[in-house]
Simulated scan of single mutants.
Amino acid sequence: MQFDPIGWLRRIFAPVDPWLFGILMTTLVGAFVVMMSASPERFQAHSVNVIAAMLLMIIAAHMRVQRLYSLALPLYVLGVLLLIAVALFGDTSKGATRWLNIGIGRIQPSELMKIAMPLMLAWYFQRREGSLKVRDFLAAGMLLMVPVGLIAKQPDLGTAILVFGAGVFVIFFAGLSWKLIVPVTALGLAAVVAIISYQSEICSPGVKWPGLRDYQKHRVCTLLDPSSDPLGKGFHTIQSTIAVGSGGILGKGWRAGTQAHLDFLPERHTDFVLAVLSEEFGLVGVIVLVILYGMLIARGLAIAANAPNLFSRLLAGAITMTLFTYAFVNMGMVGGVLPVVGVPLPFVSYGGTALTTLCLGVGILMSIGRYRLRGGKN
């Protein structure tokens, strides 16, 4: 039988959602342009990461929703066991124990939970559809807090926030009562106001913050007043806000950013790549990126709204809002309104792990969209 390359490509790309793919490719092309300025020596490695992540996305898009459902519990259990193994036997680097040596290399199990957590909770609520009670939401909260607690203890606050957010979105979309949401939100706002109001007292060197390490407390305190440690923890915030502000409306031009190219801007290819984009392409460049993110999130929510069952609806909604969390936290961090917690800018920052996780999530969205188009048969 004669080989038909066109037919073969059609079969490969059949489950790929054209809207998601088009938005994602536009974002990645823009990311290549920024990366060529921020860190040209990493361009080749970044290209390899993108190709690998896109292949994984296509593989995920081909997966049946039933297969995702069957993998939810095993992946969650595996992820929790690996996190426990990290706590017991993990490799420590720069004061953090986040990696597990498996002989052929090191893995970071917390990354698995970014996908396993929403899968597990969507599976849990699907099994209880039609008979949800308060105790079911409490049980879901316990399922969520076990991995979040293990990740926060490593410590890895950025990943803990992302895993926690993914789980909370599933619980919220499952029908969590506003009677529970409003008091927790009010308590959180009150805590923020208290921290701002009593900054000088609670940020004193001898004051301990319950549940947080000293360096995490220091990050929050330097966010409130970066000048308190301008050459230490406040340096990132000060330099990134200078870069963002100096870009103006249209920016200084590609590869003409002074903060990045005179080495004032730290981590310019990873956590603070948005500052490079803002300095070189200005407010216009940032607005274009925000529009692309908005279109990606809108498409993901549309897929979630039209999903044929509770499992796929919750999973699609949580993955979509996790993309929002990535972008919101990184932009807030670079803009100096959120603490520096090590969350990359989605699809733009250098780094294979985060890019792989994000593209896997987009592939799952495509699988759910295909499931809907086929009338529930996937």
Rank of each mutant, 00 (worst) to 15 (best):
G95I: 09
P15A: 14
L81M: 15
I12M: 12
L315D: 00
L56S: 08
T97H: 05
I249F: 12
G165R: 01
G257N: 06
E279T: 09
G141W: 00
I364K: 05
G79I: 09
F21T: 14
N101I: 02
L100R: 07
G175M: 12
V182E: 08
I59M: 13
K94D: 10
L112Y: 00
P5E: 13
A116H: 07
A14L: 11
L157E: 06
L262T: 14
P109Q: 12
V343S: 04
K114H: 10
P74A: 15
W8E: 06
V184F: 04
G376P: 01
A52S: 09
V276A: 04
A166Y: 06
T322D: 02
P344D: 02
R313V: 02
T97L: 06
T357I: 15
A139L: 11
G248E: 02
H46D: 09
G300S: 09
V343I: 12
D4H: 10
V33M: 06
M145N: 10
W254T: 08
E267W: 05
S227V: 07
K208S: 02
S349V: 02
L144Q: 00
M120R: 00
K179N: 15
A60D: 13
R128Q: 11
F172G: 01
A60C: 13
W8K: 10
G22A: 13
Y215L: 02
M36D: 12
L71P: 06
T356Y: 00
A85P: 03
A354T: 00
G251S: 12
L162V: 15
K94A: 11
H269W: 10
G361Y: 08
L223S: 04
P155K: 14
L265N: 12
S110C: 03
A38R: 04
R255V: 11
L373K: 13
L212W: 01
D214C: 00
V170P: 00
R67A: 07
S93N: 10
L24S: 14
I242N: 05
K114C: 08
V348L: 08
H236M: 08
A190W: 05
I303V: 08
R67M: 04
K233M: 15
V290T: 01
T241D: 03
K153N: 14
V48G: 06
L292K: 01
V276K: 03
S47N: 12
I6M: 09
G211A: 09
V207K: 01
P74R: 13
N309I: 00
V288T: 12
L71I: 06
T222G: 11
D17C: 05
R98L: 15
W254L: 13
S200E: 07
P308Y: 13
A354Y: 02
T320A: 04
L301W: 09
V244L: 07
A191F: 00
S131L: 09
A327V: 03
V220L: 10
S240N: 06
A152F: 10
I297C: 05
S204A: 14
D136Q: 07
A53P: 01
G300M: 07
